[in-house]
Amino acid sequence: MDDQTRLELEAAAFRTLRAHLMEKRADVQNIDMMNLAGFCRNCLSRWVQEAANARGIEMSKEDAREMFYGMPYDDWKAQNQTEASADQQAAFTKSFAENVGPKD
């Protein structure tokens, strides 16, 4: 397989993952994704930001989130996220440290 075809297939898979998480499973909480899989929608948006920045494209965290979520993050969060329990928050602290690093 040539590099361009591989790139296009990877991009299509990413778009499908994004659509699945945003349209079909908006009910799945970011904290649960992070606790179970070690990444969430915010991680995906951060990876987009990091890829843009690595290519010399200035993109803020908020810009990347709006691009990924299709709206300002706070709007999406208000529409789709629920309050996390104490157990979820404790698991998140551990998962975040293991998968992302110290919170800034």
Results as ranks from 00 to 15, higher is better:
A52N: 02
I31T: 12
D3W: 04
Q49K: 09
N35K: 00
T93A: 14
K103A: 15
M34E: 09
S95R: 12
E58W: 02
D75G: 00
T93Y: 05
M59Y: 00
Y73K: 11
A37D: 04
L36A: 14
I31K: 08
Y69A: 01
C43M: 04
Y69S: 01
M67E: 04
V28I: 15
L36F: 08
A37E: 06
R18P: 05
W76D: 12
E62P: 02
A37R: 02
G56A: 08
K103M: 11
F14Y: 10
D74Y: 14
S95L: 13
L9D: 06
E8A: 06
K24A: 13
N30I: 12
A51C: 10
W47A: 09
Q89C: 03
A64P: 01
I57E: 04
T82A: 12
C43Y: 03
L17Q: 06
A90S: 06
G56N: 02
E62S: 12
Q88A: 05
R65N: 09
A91I: 07
A84W: 12
V28E: 08
D87F: 03
N42R: 11
Y69R: 03
G101P: 02
K24R: 11
R25M: 10
R6E: 06
R46E: 14
L7A: 12
S45R: 02
G70T: 06
N35P: 01
C43S: 09
F39Y: 15
E98W: 05
Y73L: 12
Y73F: 15
Q29R: 10
A78P: 05
V100Y: 06
Q29P: 03
Q29W: 09
D74S: 15
R18H: 10
F14D: 07
Q88H: 04
L21K: 05
G70N: 07
A37Q: 08
D3H: 07
Q49W: 01
V100M: 11
A78F: 07
L36T: 07
T82E: 14
R15D: 04
A54F: 01
D75Y: 00
K24E: 15
L7G: 03
F39S: 11
Q49R: 08
L36S: 13
E62R: 06
A54R: 11
A54M: 08
R18I: 09
A13W: 00
A91K: 15
R55G: 14
A84T: 09
S85N: 07
L9T: 05
N42Q: 04
F39Q: 08
A90Y: 00
S60I: 04
